[in-house]
C-alpha cells in the first residue's frame, strides 16, 4: 500500500480514503476528485449572499459532495442543495459524505450531466456553484503524477482551452437561476477568469450584473462570481 503511494505517486488522500477540507473529513476514493483547499473559499462566498440560508442551491459536478455538504450545513430550514454529477462513483461517494454529516434532508443527489437533472427547478434556484473540469487538454500530460496518473480525467479535462464545460455552464445559468440569483465558478486562473468575466458582462450584460473575478490566497483570479438580473 505504501509502496504504491511512494512509487506510483498515489495521492495520500486515496491511501487513507479521506481528505480534510474546511472543518469536514470528506471521504474520497479512486474515481472522484480530491477537494482542493482553494475551493474552501467557495463556501464563504455563498455565505455572504444575502438570504442564502433559505434558498435552493445547485452544486454542479459535485464529485465527493464536499461543497454540497459544507453549504448544506450552513442552511436554514427552507434551504436545500441539489448535488449533481454525471459519474456513478461520484454519486456514491457524495451519498456517503451526505450521510456522514446527516445532511440527507438538505442535500438531494441527482445523477446526470450539468443542468439536465434540474428541469423541474428551473428559475427557482438562489444559486449555482460549480468546480467543473477546467484544465486544458494539452496541459494534462504535464500535471504532477499524483493528479495526472490517479485522479479522474472526467473531473479535470476541460477541453481545448479548458473552457468547454465552463462555457456550457454560463449558457445554462440564466434559465435555472431566479432573478437576483448568485453564481460562483472555479477556474484554472487569471486567463480563464478574465475571459469569462469579459464574456458574461458584454454578451450577456442584459442577464447578469456585478460579474467579477475573485482572487485565491495565491493572488490568482480563481473564481468568477455574479448575480442574475
Amino acid at each position: 500500500m505504501w509502496a504504491r503511494h511512494v512509487r506510483d505517486r498515489r495521492p495520500f488522500q486515496y491511501v487513507v480514503g479521506n481528505e480534510h477540507w474546511r472543518d469536514l473529513v470528506v471521504a474520497v476514493r479512486d474515481g472522484v476528485l480530491i477537494p482542493r483547499p482553494e475551493t474552501e473559499a467557495v463556501v464563504d462566498m455563498v455565505r455572504n449572499v444575502e438570504g442564502f440560508a433559505d434558498g435552493w442551491w445547485a452544486d454542479l459536478g459535485t464529485g465527493s459532495g464536499a461543497i454540497a455538504v459544507a453549504v448544506a450545513r450552513e442552511l436554514g430550514p427552507e434551504g436545500k442543495v441539489f448535488a449533481v454529477d454525471v459519474s456513478e462513483v461520484a454519486i456514491e461517494v457524495a451519498r456517503l459524505n451526505v450521510q456522514r454529516y446527516g445532511m440527507q434532508d438538505k442535500v438531494e443527489i441527482r445523477h446526470g450531466s450539468w443542468f439536465e437533472p434540474l428541469e423541474d427547478v428551473k428559475g427557482k434556484l438562489m444559486g449555482v456553484i460549480s468546480n467543473p473540469p477546467y484544465i486544458p487538454t494539452d496541459d494534462l500530460p504535464r500535471l504532477q503524477p499524483e493528479v495526472g496518473w490517479h485522479e479522474p480525467k472526467l473531473a479535470l479535462d476541460g477541453g481545448k482551452d479548458g473552457l468547454e464545460h465552463l462555457l456550457h455552464l454560463c449558457e445554462g445559468l440564466s434559465s435555472v437561476l431566479k432573478p437576483g440569483g448568485f453564481f460562483v465558478f472555479e477556474t484554472n486562473g487569471n486567463k480563464q477568469s478574465e475571459f469569462l468575466v469579459d464574456l458574461i458582462s458584454t454578451k450577456w450584460s442584459s442577464s447578469f450584473h456585478n460579474v467579477e473575478a475573485v482572487l485565491d490566497f495565491a493572488e490568482i483570479k480563481r473564481f468568477v462570481t455574479g448575480y442574475r438580473r
Binding site: 480530491i34 482553494e38 485522479e151 473531473a155 484554472n188 486562473g189 485565491d216 490566497f217 490568482i220 480563481r222
Partner: peptide, 22 residues
C-alpha cells in the same frame, strides 16, 4: 496577506498536496 504553500504555479485542480499550513 495570506500565504499558503500552494502559492506559485497554477494551483487549483492541477495541484494536490497535503500541506495545509497558512
Amino acid at each position: 496577506r495570506i500565504d499558503t504553500y500552494r502559492s506559485g504555479g497554477s494551483g487549483g485542480q492541477s495541484v494536490n498536496t497535503t500541506d495545509s499550513a497558512v
